[in-house]
Amino acid sequence: MIGRMQMDPWGYRLLFLALAGLFLFVRLLPLDSMVGRFPGPDLLLCLIFAWMMRRPDFLPVWLIAPVFLVEDLLLLRPPGLWTALVVLATEFLRGRHALTREMNFAVEWLLASGLMIAMLLAQRLALTLTLLDLPPFGFAVVQVLWSILAYPLVVGLSRLAFDLRKPATGEVDDFGRRL
């Protein structure tokens, strides 16, 4: 059964939806009611980047966009802004899948970190240009730093728990299709 799920994109898509629902549920819980608490990492973003670096065919854009749009609406962010930034970042990674396949983990981590920082700056620029209220800069930077630090843990758990790995060059699935 696990071997079947290893190559079944629909199993991973359902798993992604379940994890996204779990992460959103935890973010909506009133656990951080103390003033001055540090924000947690954006685990959903780390999960998407980790999966996009390994198997971009498991996460199509029609699955990512609605998840983040719902997250925008429930977390009271400007609807569609963060969604658009995530879609742009994931499509950037999807277009470079052949290059990311050959990267070692340190370079992959730098690429994911750079994308997270670029997304933060693009979001702040868009909010500034539209004259919307900006979240505190320190809060946003700490969240991005936590996300950067959490990325290796998410990659490791994805590999151990879900056997999600980069396919080797020339590897084929059970049906003879190149991965």
Results as ranks from 00 to 15, higher is better:
2 I>V: 07
3 G>Q: 08
4 R>I: 15
5 M>Y: 15
8 D>C: 09
9 P>I: 00
9 P>L: 03
12 Y>I: 05
14 L>W: 11
15 L>G: 14
20 A>K: 04
21 G>K: 08
25 F>I: 01
27 R>H: 06
27 R>D: 12
28 L>E: 12
28 L>P: 08
30 P>N: 11
30 P>E: 08
35 V>D: 09
39 P>I: 09
40 G>Q: 12
42 D>A: 15
42 D>R: 14
45 L>C: 12
46 C>H: 00
46 C>V: 00
48 I>W: 06
50 A>W: 00
50 A>L: 03
50 A>P: 07
55 R>I: 02
56 P>S: 02
58 F>I: 10
59 L>M: 02
62 W>D: 06
64 I>A: 00
65 A>P: 01
66 P>C: 10
69 L>H: 01
71 E>M: 09
83 T>E: 00
84 A>I: 06
86 V>N: 03
93 L>M: 15
93 L>F: 06
93 L>N: 03
93 L>T: 03
97 H>V: 10
107 V>D: 07
107 V>Q: 10
109 W>G: 03
112 A>M: 03
116 M>K: 04
117 I>E: 11
120 L>H: 08
122 A>C: 10
126 A>F: 14
126 A>R: 04
130 T>L: 12
131 L>V: 09
133 D>E: 12
135 P>K: 06
136 P>Q: 15
138 G>Q: 03
139 F>E: 13
139 F>C: 02
145 L>C: 13
147 S>V: 08
150 A>G: 06
152 P>K: 06
153 L>P: 00
156 G>E: 11
161 A>H: 02
165 R>W: 07
166 K>I: 11
168 A>Q: 15
177 R>K: 06
